[in-house]
């Protein structure tokens, strides 16, 4: 620490030219950082203005309680997102319950049990590759596997959840692997030293210590899952449905699918007002999921 301070002193004293370059570089890096935040702010301001019709004083806000509790209508003032909102939430539950155990199981195997050989290396590389496969390809996989081969009902919550679950599975595995790898070896050794078996060590030491990290990674992945549109188009999720699904085998529509359908409507009220209200709802759900992830992380890291 002392060394870096002397270095800074030296830089300051070494003439204005070097200082100027350093400042410029720092400025560019700061600009890059702010760029991301700026874009999110522009998006949020833009859709929020549209959703609450702030720039059009005569118009009632598009996003109100009625929007959240009613179904699509051909009259923009009456259109709502309720069935798609419930559809999205049910789909996320299916995703969480299907991707979480498989992902965590894979991560624990790879970190705690797997031998150090080429096959395991190959598997790990492929999990990384899978994380980069375009989502529309997962949609085709879901169509071929769940609907055509396993004859599950097309456009149902369970098919949507399984398909998008496959999509986020690599992300869940990788983040869970990092969380498991982050458990200090000394804790494992302490457990073994007390006579615990490997199973007891995983159950009592590794899993509890890594669970906050696993949960955070999974919830962030679910945040991505709730916004996926392309796989839902492929598996035949409905553009518009008037009643919320009552079980996982019912047909459903999800928020991004409904928003996409509104974007194709001819009238401006749908393309700007209703669409923006849908986007704000989707963002609100997604951001609250991310907030939950941060809360979980902070709560358990304090220990």
């Amino acid at each position: 620490m002392g060394e870096s301070e002397t270095q800074r002193e030296w830089t300051k004293g070494a003439g204005s030219q070097i200082d100027w370059r350093g400042r410029a570089f720092e400025g560019i890096c700061l600009g890059s950082t702010l760029f991301g935040i700026l874009m999110v702010l522009v998006l949020l301001v833009y859709v929020t203005l549209d959703a609450f019709a702030i720039t059009q004083p005569g118009t009632a806000p598009w996003l109100d309680w009625g929007f959240l509790t009613s179904a699509h209508s051909r009259f923009p003032e009456e259109a709502g997102i309720y069935p798609a909102l419930i559809g999205s939430i049910m789909m996320v539950i299916v995703i969480a319950l299907s991707a979480f155990p498989v992902g965590v199981g894979a991560a624990i195997y790879l970190e705690e049990y797997a031998p150090d050989n080429r096959l395991i290396d190959l598997i790990e590389i492929n999990i990384g590759n899978l994380a980069g496969v375009p989502s529309v390809v997962y949609g085709l996989l879901g169509l071929a596997l769940f609907i055509r081969t396993l004859r599950m009902p097309s456009g149902s919550v369970i098919v949507g959840g399984f398909t998008v679950g496959l999509l986020i599975l690599p992300i869940v595995i990788i983040s869970a692997q990092e969380a498991v790898a982050g458990v200090p070896d000394s804790q494992r050794r302490a457990s073994y030293a007390m006579g615990a078996t490997r199973w007891q060590t995983v159950r009592n030491v590794v899993l509890p210590a890594s669970l906050p990290g696993i949960m955070t990674g999974t919830i962030l992945a679910l945040g991505r899952a709730i916004g996926e549109t392309a796989p839902l188009l492929m598996i035949g999720a409905a553009a518009t449905i008037f009643s919320a699904p009552s079980g996982p085998f019912d047909r459903f529509s999800a928020m991004p699918r409904q928003i996409f359908a509104w974007a194709g409507q001819p009238s401006d009220e749908f393309q700007y007002g209703v669409l923006a209200a849908g986007v704000v709802t989707l963002l609100a759900v997604m951001l609250s999921m991310n907030a939950a992830a941060i809360l979980i992380r902070n709560r358990y890291q304090r220990q």
Binding site: A71, G155, G236, A238, A239, T240, F242, S243, D250, R251
Partner: peptide, 20 residues
């Protein structure tokens, strides 16, 4: 969609409409 919207108000069915 307009037909389905009107029909659903009077009948207890679940209609899903997809644009493919």
């Amino acid at each position: 969609v307009a037909m389905a919207e009107e029909y659903e108000q009077e009948n207890d069915v679940s209609i899903s409409v997809d644009s493919t």
